[in-house]
């Protein structure tokens, strides 16, 4: 059954390490839904979170293939139930005199931040679970979304 898996990859922070990992995904035809890479508290290492779409067999294959990379220290297939899962979203929406109040209302429901307001646009930010960001985006759809930016998924075991 197709679903999404979150892979946490601990890798040596060597030049080209991200290319090695992403190159492996493309040549083996695995789908990356999102990827986030950050240096860890120890600057020798990077932690890379990859959301992969596929079935159980693909997830196991990805895990084993990534584990073989010389620069990769550890690969963990994160169980979403035992993790906090977060993404960050920036959204610019069309603002008019008529819709301004509505926009603020939706933002408040989600406890989203309002980062900028101009006569014609409003930029909002929201951090949350991917599904929450999906519905947030959907609610602004009727007002005219000018731009959406989303980070990839980060997950941390509880």
């Amino acid at each position: 059954m197709e679903k999404e898996y979150i892979l946490s990859v601990l890798a040596h922070n060597n030049a080209g390490v991200l290319q090695r990992i992403s190159g492996l995904f493309s040549r083996r035809c695995y789908n990356i839904k999102s990827i986030v890479a950050t240096q860890t508290a120890d600057p020798e290492y990077s932690e890379i979170h990859i959301v992969v779409q596929g079935d159980d067999r693909i997830a196991r294959q990805v895990n084993k293939q990534v584990s073989k990379l010389v620069d990769v220290e550890e690969v963990t297939l994160l169980q979403q139930e035992s993790c906090v899962v977060r993404e960050h979203l920036l959204l610019k929406v069309n603002r008019t005199l008529g819709n301004s109040e509505k926009l603020v209302e939706i933002a408040n429901v989600f406890h989203a931040g309002i980062l900028s307001v101009t006569p014609t646009s409003m930029v909002l930010e929201l951090t949350g679970a991917p599904a929450e960001l999906d519905s947030f985006t959907e609610l602004f759809q009727p007002y005219g979304i000018l731009k959406v930016l989303r980070t990839g998924t980060m997950a941390m075991e509880k």
């Binding site: 030049a15 080209g16 290319q19 090695r20 190159g23 040549r27 990379l69 010389v70 620069d71």
Partner: peptide, 14 residues
């Protein structure tokens, strides 16, 4: 050449 040979080496270095 390290970029080119990434998919066909176990590992490579510069």
């Amino acid at each position: 050449i390290t970029g080119i040979t990434m998919p066909v080496t176990k590992h490579n270095f510069i």
